[in-house]
Design a protein around this nucleic acid. Structure first.
Lengths: 163, 163
DNA sequence: CTCAGTGCAAACCGTTTGCAGAACG
DNA sequence: CGTTCTGCAAACGGTTTGCACTGAG
């Protein structure tokens, strides 16, 4: 990763506007996130940085991610894996939902206008002022399916119909 | 809480079928969850139990919740608060989505057939085999709105259009 | 009686924080 | 040069686990 990502300049501008120092570590973390189209964990980011010969503490990564999230250049996700993932919001559909493969963890993005309709319908129905939403569909991705993976059958279940 | 919840019998049956002992603690935890229509945290559950004069360790509560979730009688939720919440699935719309108030934490349930359409549409579009989904809309509930609460304006943001 | 369940406390693990030393502006 | 950042390591907080003891069957 020797090329400076153009989006990096947006982050620099943001820092400048906020009166915050533009440090090498902040640039390195931002560069890493902007260079990937994936949904990265902090561990992923740490690994990329190490590959690039950067030795940056986890605390600094977390602190820089806070800045990136506040700048709205990066979005934070929690797919229930026990840790967070980060995705940059540049050159990307501004609003999108996620498919998450339960087998390999792959995340696929998709658009859904329907959800926005639901949002406004529900807003008026419940007097609710929506701020943001999340729609996540969990299942098996194409690859894992064709590899023959099956979801553990519903297994242990309890007939709730027969109360 | 002196009345034995009828749903408790379903859990007892489940335990019996699994060859697991029906203990007083398990019944007490299940009873607590079944008696509430809310989305309870472990702390909530602990509090209810204490009120009822039950002295049950947190570990046992967690272990019993595992059983309840496996039995499919109870659903686990993570609304990004840093802890999980639990809701029983009895006498309730089998599939529903959630409105979460960012101010008071109130959770409201609603139905959306649209989401199921989205699910099947996306399934065929991406060759994805859906297993379950979650749609959560975050914002302000009616009460908080009429109490004059405002969401912190988007605040710090970065003009990503002007690359 | 025997084996699984319980309670306590310690371990876990991702994340946050305090503080001495290094860097930005 | 003063102020902020960084890195380390310790703290945090919800959850899990190990183990001696209790209790269900």
């Amino acid at each position: 990763m020797t090329t400076t990502h153009p989006f990096l300049r947006l982050f620099s501008r943001y820092l400048r506007e906020q009166g915050l120092p533009i440090t090498h570590q902040r640039e390195a973390v931002a560069q890493t996130v902007f260079s990937s189209t994936d949904h990265l964990s902090v561990e992923d980011i740490e690994g990329c940085l190490r590959e690039d010969g950067e030795r940056i503490g986890k605390a600094t990564i977390y602190r820089t991610l806070d800045l990136l999230v506040n700048s709205k250049l990066v979005e934070e996700h929690d797919f229930g894996e026990g840790f967070k993932r980060y995705e940059h919001r540049l050159s990307r559909q501004p609003v999108h939902e996620h498919l998450i493969c339960l087998e390999c963890g792959k995340v696929t993005e998709f658009r859904s206008e329907e959800v926005e309709h639901v949002e406004s319908r529900v807003a008026s129905e419940y007097g609710f002022a929506p701020s943001r939403h999340r729609l996540e569909i969990y299942g098996l991705c194409r690859n894992c399916r064709s590899a023959g993976v099956e979801l553990p059958t519903t297994g242990i279940s309890c007939p709730i119909d027969s109360v």
